[in-house]
């Protein structure tokens, strides 16, 4: 990705929604999905992430992959705020089915440039019905 490439799309701002449905480990969809969100930041689009089904495990605290020999990329989620991602939607029903609460998720924050760079939480718990509306209102939905 070059600056030139990014500038060719300047002016158009679409709502991008990355829907993450799979557990963080066991396949690399989660890792490669996260890479899309980070690269996409250079295009200055309106970006949101959604986590449903086993995807909610991606945001779990204290992930440890040492015994399966894969890369633990979970610290990267903490960088999302620096990449202008400010909205993370976690489906409440998916969390509850898996015996999780918001306290089990990483406390992800972004710095609000419009509010003296105050740190604000990124994670919003939403119902399946609310998430349906969010998906409907998005221009580009990519599923990982």
């Amino acid at each position: 990705m070059s600056d030139q490439e990014a500038s060719q799309t300047s002016g158009v701002i679409k709502k991008f929604l990355y829907v993450n449905r799979r557990a963080p480990h066991g396949s690399n969809y989660a890792q490669e999905g996260l890479e899309v969100a980070l690269i996409g930041a250079a295009f200055e689009q309106d970006v949101a992430m959604a986590y449903i089904d086993d995807g909610v495990f991606q945001l779990k605290t204290d992930q440890d992959t040492s015994e399966i020999g894969t890369k633990n990329f979970s610290p990267t989620y903490r960088a999302l705020g620096d990449y202008d991602v400010k909205k993370i939607y976690v489906e409440r029903e998916s969390l509850e089915k898996r015996g999780l609460t918001q306290d089990d998720l990483m406390p992800l924050v972004y710095e609000d440039e419009d509010d003296d760079w105050e740190e604000k939480p990124m994670i919003n718990l939403v119902t399946a019905a609310e998430l349906q509306d969010i998906i409907e209102q998005s221009d580009v939905v990519l599923n990982f």
Binding site: M1, T9, F16, E35, V36, G40, L142
Partner: peptide, 18 residues
């Protein structure tokens, strides 16, 4: 090429079908 090509396709296309 890079992932930017995917984002660019999403921005410039009327429909991105996966």
């Amino acid at each position: 090429s890079g992932l930017g090509q995917l984002i660019e396709a999403g921005i410039q296309s009327d429909r991105l079908v996966a």
